[in-house]
């Protein structure tokens, strides 16, 4: 009796279902692709979101303060030295003026070093995996850090450049050789190092490179090599172009590498 009842009901419901047919919807895909829907969905469905500009602000907050301090120091040093040029006694009792731009050329490699080191903190402290899986991925973090500090660095260099012709009695070429070239050279040499090495070896190598660049410029000046290079027509602009392009290429390689985990600490598991 009950089974009959049940069969009746299933028959009934089955028939019912067959009575209610629906033509397929036509505008489903276009709706979900539409900008109206996407805009509304973005607001509600994904976690309450922060925009890129807010993200940049938060990253700025996490950049360590002494980076800004370093920039300030270099700027202050430039101003001070311009006002009170540093004179050292040379062996032959000649007062050799260590020109300001040359002193700066020795400091600027470390500015580049600081920026690149700051960007590479994720790698140094094992945060890469976590950052890679976040919504603003490691890639974004690196771009933010390099972008912020890079722009700040270039601003400093841009501010220093006009000081040459106006205060240091150096022509444009020489100023560029002392201010821009060390920066670009250091970048070109340290970026591949950060890409290929990790940990302590990397830090030591990068510091070494910056020191070498620094010393190179000092000796180049002392040996008059720098002055001769500046006098050679088009050499400095060519060098700037070459290292400029090289630095940009290296930067691109570095950032591209951050899109996936390339350093496998645990090859097991």
């Amino acid at each position: 009796m009950k089974r009959n009842h049940f069969k009746q009901k299933t028959l009934l419901t089955k028939t019912l279902r067959s009575l209610y047919t629906v033509p397929a919807p036509e505008r489903k895909d276009t709706f979900f692709q539409s900008s109206d829907y996407r805009a509304a969905a973005r607001e509600t469905l994904y976690s309450p979101r922060i925009s890129w500009s807010v993200f940049l602000q938060t990253q700025m907050h996490y950049i360590r303060k002494w980076n800004w301090l370093l920039t300030l120091c270099i700027f202050a040093a430039a101003i001070l030295l311009t006002l009170h040029p540093w004179q050292t006694p040379a062996p032959q009792e000649q007062l050799q003026e260590l020109s300001t731009p040359v002193i700066l050329s020795a400091c600027i490699p470390f500015l580049a070093l600081a920026t690149i080191a700051e960007a590479g903190r994720s790698a140094r402290f094992g945060m890469e995996e976590l950052e890679l899986s976040a919504r603003f991925s490691l890639h974004a973090v690196l771009c933010a850090r390099l972008g912020i500090l890079g722009v700040e660095n270039l601003l400093l260099l841009a501010v220093l450049m006009p000081l040459g012709p106006h205060f240091w009695e150096t022509d444009l070429s020489m100023t560029a050789a002392c201010i821009l070239l060390p920066y670009l050279l250091t970048c070109t040499l340290t970026l591949p190092a950060v890409r290929k090495l990790r940990g302590r070896d990397c830090t030591i190598l990068c510091t070494g490179i910056s020191a070498l660049v620094s010393v190179f410029f000092l000796t180049a000046y002392a040996a008059d090599f720098l002055t001769r290079a500046v006098d050679t027509p088009a050499l400095i602009p060519a060098a700037l172009l070459f290292f400029g392009v090289a630095a940009v290429l290296e930067l691109r390689k570095y950032i591209r590498q951050s899109e996936e985990l390339t350093w496998n600490f645990t090859l097991t598991g």
Binding site: P25, D36, Y37, A40, A41, T44, L45, P48
Partner: peptide
């Protein structure tokens, strides 16, 4: 009409519900 109303439903849902 059904599709229009369906789409309106979704948009309204997004408007009024929070994350």
């Amino acid at each position: 009409l059904a599709e229009d109303l369906t789409q309106e439903t979704f948009l309204k849902f997004l408007e009024t519900s929070t994350y």
